[in-house]
Design a protein around this nucleic acid. Structure first.
Lengths: 123, 123
DNA sequence: CGCTCGAATCGATATTGTTCGGTTCGGGTC
DNA sequence: GACCCGAACCGAACAATATCGATTCGAGCG
């Protein structure tokens, strides 16, 4: 495991620490587990697009059908549909079918927290 | 403004609402302002990458120098450096130079909140 | 100064994400 | 059933990001 580290890095660590091998091991252990990272990535990737952020900002005060979101985004139907699908796949949004229309809503208030925190973050 | 909407969408809204023009206008006004969306996007794009998420997870309990992060990620120096630059540009991370080394740390506890919320979100 | 080393930048290439016309699907109406 | 309409899906063209070797930069040292 620790022997996959490039020699240059090992040498650096040898200068930095008394027990480079121990430090190497603890550095490896610092790595977050894959499931945790996967969950975080799923969410952040879904939020990392202007259209999708605008959809969520529009859904803050209630559900809307796909055709209305089309107006808010001012984008073609197929484009809006694919973004809605990504948001749904990421578990950020839920849909409800009523007759010919499909209504979308934010699935969890935690999403609103994410939007709020991100908005303020870079002061 | 409302006349840029495709005719098909207008027709849809005419069937959905009594005053399609009013609804159209309020839909447009639902659009979040650009500054707000920009701020949110900057943050989410910076977080939408596995390497960068792993860096932040590693920085949870204190600062680390670039060469140590290289070990945590098990990635080449230039790759790590470019990710650190993106995190810094997004205002998520701060750096501090000490001699030949550069130490990075999370710049705001709000970042930790984002990581925590995202991890739990998709239950 | 000349040298070493950690970090930053450059740039060509590879990978991933986005757009959107065309088509299909599913419900509703007559 | 035939038709209409909103939404979903497909896939090819295009755009944005990521990767990483090579080079440069900048601090420390002899």
């Amino acid at each position: 495991m620790t022997d996959t580290v490039p020699e240059s890095t090992r040498q650096t660590l040898e200068r930095l620490y008394e027990n480079p091998d121990d430090r190497l091991t603890s550095l490896f252990e610092l790595g977050a587990d894959d499931e945790q990272v996967d969950a975080q990535l799923t969410v952040f990737k879904a939020l990392a697009n202007e259209h999708r952020v605008r959809i969520l900002d529009a859904l803050r005060d209630g559900e809307m059908c796909a055709c209305e979101l089309q107006v808010v985004l001012d984008a073609p139907q197929s484009t809006v549909a694919s973004h809605l699908r990504e948001l749904k796949d990421a578990g950020i949004v839920r849909k409800r079918r009523q007759g010919k229309w499909t209504y979308y809503r934010i699935g969890d208030t935690a999403v609103l927290q994410l939007l709020d925190i991100a908005e303020v973050l870079d002061e």
